[in-house]
């Protein structure tokens, strides 16, 4: 049970990032900068919390930094018609280096962090209470974000518009939906959530700042978005699966001390190759043969993804 609680807590930053990127990609934009965005926002959150003593301001700083990067990607794609992958990749490396450079004075410092807070009542429920409701606000926020994103995308009219913008931008435009304005909005909102992932790392899960604190988590988040078939709940399940792999690797370190250096790398490799299964044809055919599984396995990307929408 204790392990389950650990998995839920360690996966919470990834949940923010995956839900954020899912919203962005649903609108038809790829924000490839996640690995750098998370790193820079983690640094910004920690530095802000260190200077002001406020965790809230730390989260706010992280959201602003990452939403700013997302806005730049949206601008360069929508206004300048640049390739989103190219701009995103450059920003990945740039933001990570900027985090190292600006974060140098804060390495090894201690700052205010997210305090534990068991939800009164709910945390007393046997088993579930310990696993789900004995954490802190950052972790509870990650549940809320998943549920809210699911409800918004699939249960509201605005969510339907969002899907239309990502799937059939021309058709959406013909129906009077301002495609590019919505793409700006959802890319920036998604970027803000990615920033919360950074803050959740440096102010909660990995307390503190050092070079490379969140390295590779952004890439894993991008992979999980695909693994989750652009669905917030399945994406969250992917995050918990990855959290489980990480916790397992940690548990195995005393068992195989010889391998202790490579165990932390293994979850990343394993996760990516699990994801690759989703691409393979036989896996898709499995979905066709068992219509009941189709919902579970289907993972077609929004068909307008990465495509620039131009008004003719």
């Amino acid at each position: 049970m204790e392990e389950l609680a650990t998995i839920i807590a360690t996966a919470s930053p990834l949940v923010y990032a995956v839900v954020g990127e899912t919203i962005t990609e649903k609108a038809g934009v790829i924000n490839l900068s996640l690995d750098g965005s998370i790193m820079l926002s983690a640094m910004a959150a920690f530095a802000t919390s260190f200077i002001t003593g406020s965790v809230w301001l730390g989260f706010l700083a992280a959201i602003l930094v990452s939403a700013g990067i997302a806005a730049l990607i949206a601008f360069s794609s929508i206004k300048l018609h640049l390739n989103q992958i190219a701009v995103g990749f450059v920003l990945t490396l740039l933001a990570a280096d900027l985090a190292s450079f600006l974060g140098d004075p804060y390495v090894g410092e201690r700052a205010a962090h997210v305090e534990p807070w068991a939800i009164p009542g709910l945390s007393k429920i046997p088993v579930i209470g310990d696993v789900l409701f004995d954490h802190n606000l950052s972790v509870y926020g990650s549940y809320l974000v998943v549920i809210a994103a699911y409800w918004f995308i699939f249960r509201t009219k605005r969510g339907l518009e969002l899907q239309g913008v990502g799937e059939r931008p021309e058709a959406a435009f013909a129906r009077g939906i301002p495609v590019n304005r919505l793409r700006y909005i959802y890319t920036i909102i998604g970027g803000g959530l990615v920033g919360m992932a950074g803050a959740a790392f440096s102010l909660d899960v990995k307390l503190g700042w050092r070079d490379g604190l969140t390295q590779n988590f952004g890439w894993i988040a991008l992979a999980i978005v695909i693994f989750g078939g652009w669905h917030p709940i399945r994406g969250a399940i992917g995050c918990y699966l990855f959290g489980a792999l990480q916790t397992l690797a940690l548990k195995l370190q005393p068992v195989w001390p010889d391998l202790s250096q490579i165990l932390p790398i293994l979850p990343f490799a394993l996760m990516i190759f699990t994801l690759l299964l989703v691409y393979l044809d036989w896996f898709r055919r499995l979905g066709d043969r068992h219509p009941g599984w189709r919902r579970l396995l289907a993972s077609d990307p929004p068909s307008g993804i990465g495509r620039i929408f131009k008004r003719e």
């Binding site: 740039l94 280096d97 450079f101």
Partner: peptide, 14 residues
């Protein structure tokens, strides 16, 4: 921090 070299490379390409 020597990462400033990387920052400049990234800024230039961006």
């Amino acid at each position: 921090d020597s990462a400033i070299g990387g920052v400049l490379q990234g800024v230039l390409v961006l």
